[in-house]
Simulated assay, not measured.
Amino acid sequence: MTDLTVSADLLRPTAAAPSVPNRDKIQETAKAFEATFISQMLKPMFDGLSTDGLFGGGQAEATWRSFMLDEMAKTTVASGGIGLSGPVMSEMLKMQEGRR
Rank of each mutant, 00 (worst) to 15 (best):
E61T: 07
P18Y: 06
T14S: 13
G83T: 00
L84I: 06
I38C: 02
K25H: 14
D52H: 09
R99Q: 02
T51W: 07
L69W: 07
K31W: 13
S7Y: 14
G58W: 06
E71A: 11
S79W: 09
R65S: 01
M72I: 02
V77M: 06
A16D: 04
M92K: 02
A35I: 05
D47W: 08
G86R: 14
E61H: 13
I82E: 02
G81H: 09
I82A: 02
K74C: 03
A32E: 00
V6F: 14
F37L: 07
S7M: 13
G57A: 09
A73T: 09
A30E: 03
Q27M: 08
I26M: 10
K43P: 09
L49R: 04
L42R: 04
L4P: 10
A32G: 10
F46N: 11
G86N: 14
S7K: 12
R12Q: 14
G83W: 11
F33I: 14
R23C: 03
F33K: 14
T36G: 12
D52E: 13
M45L: 08
A16Y: 03
K94D: 10
L54S: 10
Q59L: 04
K31E: 15
A73H: 07
R65A: 01
S39K: 05
A8S: 14
L42V: 04
M45F: 03
D24V: 13
A32P: 08
T14R: 15
G58A: 00
D24S: 15
S90L: 12
K25P: 04
M68V: 07
S50W: 08
E91H: 13
S7G: 13
R12C: 06
G81L: 09
P87E: 07
A32L: 09
T36H: 15
G48F: 01
L69D: 04
E28P: 01
D70C: 04
F37G: 10
T76L: 05
E61Y: 10
A60F: 14
D70R: 05
I26G: 03
V88K: 08
E61A: 14
T29R: 09
L54K: 14
K94Q: 08
N22H: 15
L84T: 03
V20M: 01
K31L: 01
F46K: 08
D3Q: 00
K31P: 06
D24T: 12
